[in-house]
Simulated assay, not measured.
Amino acid sequence: MKNKRFYGNLMLILTALIWGSSFVAQSVGMDYIGPFTFNAIRCIIGGIVLIPIILVMDKVKKESKTKNNNKQLILGGILCGIALFIGSTFQQFGISFTSVGKAGFITALYIVLVPLLGILFKKKVSLKIWLSVFISLIGLYLLCITENFSIGKGDLLVLFCAFFFAIHILLIDYFSPKVNGVKMSCIQFFVAGIISVFPMAIFESPTLASILLAWAPILYAGVLSCGVAYTLQVVAQKNTDPTVASLLLSLESVFAVISGWFILGESLSLKELIGCILVFIAIILAQLPNKNKIL
């Protein structure tokens, strides 16, 4: 049991590493193609990668295929796909105007936003979450606000992305207990990819040559970030405490900064680094278990 937990934790750290470094792939990919083109191709690739995994899982474990379950699966996949499309679009455009490290930390704020949005569903918010919000706001100020008290365009777009990713998490939380998570993820990737095709055709003019130039970041984001990392998360969380899992996955934001510095040569000022630290503290605090059942 201890070995399973150990390897599960290692897989979660690997997942966080893949997700964090994928910010670099997203940034580099847009040197050759537009945001909608990048998202369309990588999401469709992510969906394709999950198909053989689903086939293997079906052979290992037969599931009941009720009509109601299929309806929930399709509905969940479509709604999650729409939320994923909107969040990914804001993120992809935002990365064009801000650094990879800042984008990683601002995106991770969805962890704090999720319980706040839960208020809409009449769920109470604990003092711990309000404290997390306060700390994250200070961190966000140091990370994003300039000397003339304005927020950068890219930072604002990524903040919108965090909001829609929080909605995405709430949708997954609602549908995942009722359906197969990997199948729903596969559907959501195809939905997000197909929706991205329409604005791609209207606003961008991708060529086969430009897409081929971006093959490495596209495959990294599609195969590893969407397909492999998601599967690792699903497998690993079976043998890991949920709180530990969420804490390990929050390392995504740290790996984003490290990847941006190591691969792209990006750097953060002292003020921005302090902001990152405060945001990370807020993220950790938001995921610590409560003594009661209040969010």
Rank of each mutant, 00 (worst) to 15 (best):
281 I>E: 04
287 Q>K: 04
169 I>V: 10
204 E>Y: 05
117 L>E: 03
26 Q>N: 12
124 K>E: 07
93 F>K: 08
138 I>M: 06
71 K>H: 14
1 M>R: 15
41 I>T: 04
251 L>Q: 15
197 V>D: 01
105 F>R: 00
55 L>C: 11
145 I>C: 08
188 Q>V: 03
154 G>Q: 00
145 I>H: 12
46 G>Y: 08
23 F>V: 02
102 K>M: 06
26 Q>I: 11
281 I>C: 11
21 S>N: 11
131 L>N: 06
237 Q>D: 01
214 A>I: 09
14 L>N: 14
275 G>A: 02
42 R>M: 06
13 I>T: 15
211 I>S: 11
123 K>W: 15
278 L>G: 04
111 I>P: 07
35 P>Q: 01
251 L>C: 08
96 S>P: 02
98 T>D: 04
146 T>V: 08
274 I>D: 09
69 N>S: 04
107 T>N: 15
292 N>Q: 08
215 W>M: 13
278 L>E: 14
216 A>L: 05
214 A>Y: 07
30 M>H: 14
236 A>K: 04
152 G>D: 12
255 F>R: 00
123 K>V: 10
277 I>D: 01
51 I>V: 07
42 R>D: 11
182 V>E: 00
138 I>W: 11
267 S>K: 09
91 Q>I: 09
171 L>W: 01
9 N>P: 05
292 N>S: 07
160 F>R: 01
286 A>E: 08
177 P>L: 06
217 P>E: 06
99 S>V: 00
262 F>Y: 13
6 F>N: 12
60 V>Y: 09
96 S>H: 03
290 N>E: 15
264 L>M: 02
84 L>P: 12
57 M>L: 06
125 V>C: 03
143 L>S: 03
4 K>D: 06
271 K>L: 10
150 S>P: 13
51 I>H: 01
269 S>V: 05
